[in-house]
């Protein structure tokens, strides 16, 4: 029967950091780029929409500025970042991410084409 703390070994000192594998380091680099991208798009959408989505034009809503027939805050605050996000994702996945060999399964399982 294990205990909740069964993975901690009181007699061993930490050795984390020295022996990290290359594939782990690469995955971690990619994670930080992903986090940075999320912050950028979150900020873009929040600032753009918070500044303009709640505004009532002086002449009433019939004078709301539009782009491509949609309210302009939607296009500039959501549509445009959405397009840029797609372009960034394509660059990230096809240009920045590195292929990493995946380990063999710990259990024997045949691999098949889906």
């Amino acid at each position: 029967m294990t205990s909740i703390t069964s993975d901690s070994k009181p007699d061993e000192e930490p050795s984390v950091g020295e022996s990290l594998g290359d594939s782990f380091r690469q995955a971690r680099r990619e994670m930080w780029v992903m986090v940075a991208a999320w912050i950028v798009f979150f900020t873009w959408v929040t600032v753009a929409c918070a500044r303009s989505a709640y505004v009532i034009p002086e002449g009433g809503m019939s004078e709301i500025p539009t782009i491509l027939g949609m309210p302009s805050w939607v296009v500039l605050g959501i549509g445009l970042p959405w397009v840029v996000a797609n372009l960034f994702i394509a660059w990230f996945a096809l240009g920045f991410m590195k292929d990493t060999p995946l380990p063999d399964n710990a259990e024997p399982e045949a691999s098949t084409e889906a």
Partner: peptide
């Protein structure tokens, strides 16, 4: 807009 990157990238 960024879910594919966050969910799969993370």
């Amino acid at each position: 807009m960024i879910v594919p990157l966050v969910a799969l990238g993370l």
